[in-house]
């Protein structure tokens, strides 16, 4: 183990922990909120089962606005909201608020796209069997789209990691912030490179895991 890493061992572990909290909560919100929102986007589209123009437009505009914001501006813009939700605008927990909102918007769009790939005929056969909308979602849509849903979550996770690296501006910490503060600002170039290499390996591992699971799930 290089000396420089041993020297900053405690700080490195802490920053990894912070990244895990920020990215982990983003993934949780992507699944708990983004997945239902994306499904609703899909179902409320023109010609789909729950066709509803106002719900579709509302969700669609939310997703577009969040996704078109430059991320740092979104973080700043959301400060009052963040303060309202977690009581403070500074720290790792505060940083998860804008991250989670981006996560919801980002993943819901990928969910909508994954569901749009399902052949219409499958849904028709489900309706002809007398399935309810919930049954169609769980027994048909999510089953048929499961490998795209996993791939989408993999892509999203990697984006969340990338977004989380700039959360230093609200004291969110994390690996990216550590690399900037210690590696860049204190001229510990070696340390910075180690951190970058670590992140590359980490992202590769996530992509590999996601692709492998998706492949396993895909029987088409």
């Amino acid at each position: 183990m290089p000396d420089i890493i041993l020297k900053y061992q405690a700080e490195i572990w802490q920053s990894i922990g912070e990244t895990f909290v920020m990215v982990g909560l983003s993934i949780a919100f992507a699944l708990l909120v983004g997945l239902p929102v994306g499904t609703l986007l899909y179902l409320c589209r023109k010609g789909q089962l729950l066709e509803n123009r106002s719900i579709y437009s509302g969700l669609n505009i939310f997703v577009n606005i969040v996704r078109s914001f430059p991320f740092l501006l979104l973080v700043v813009f959301l400060i009052p909201f963040t303060r309202f939700i977690v009581g403070t605008a500074i720290g790792t927990m505060a940083a998860t608020v804008p991250l989670s909102i981006v996560a919801i918007a980002y993943y819901s769009r990928l969910v909508e796209q994954a569901l749009l790939e399902i052949p219409r005929g499958i849904i028709e056969s489900a309706v002809s069997m007398g399935a309810s909308v919930l049954e169609i979602i769980f027994k048909f849509l999510f089953v048929e789209a499961r490998s795209s849903l996993v791939l989408g979550l993999t892509t999203s996770t990697i984006s969340f990691i990338s977004y989380s690296t700039v959360m230093g501006i609200v004291g969110g910490g994390g690996v990216g912030d550590f690399a900037i503060r210690y590696g860049y600002q204190r001229f510990e170039t070696e340390l910075m490179i180690y951190i970058i290499v670590m992140m590359i390996i980490f992202v590769q591992a996530i992509q590999f895991t996601g692709t492998t699971i998706a492949k396993k799930l895909d029987k088409k």
């Binding site: 052949p119 005929g121 002809s128 007398g130 089953v143 048929e144 895909d218």
Partner: peptide
């Protein structure tokens, strides 16, 4: 929906759930 359960339907492209 209940009534549809006693009306089966098949299609040109089968429409099976591939997964």
């Amino acid at each position: 929906r209940e009534a549809r359960r006693s009306i089966g339907m098949i299609f040109q492209h089968f429409n099976l759930v591939s997964n």
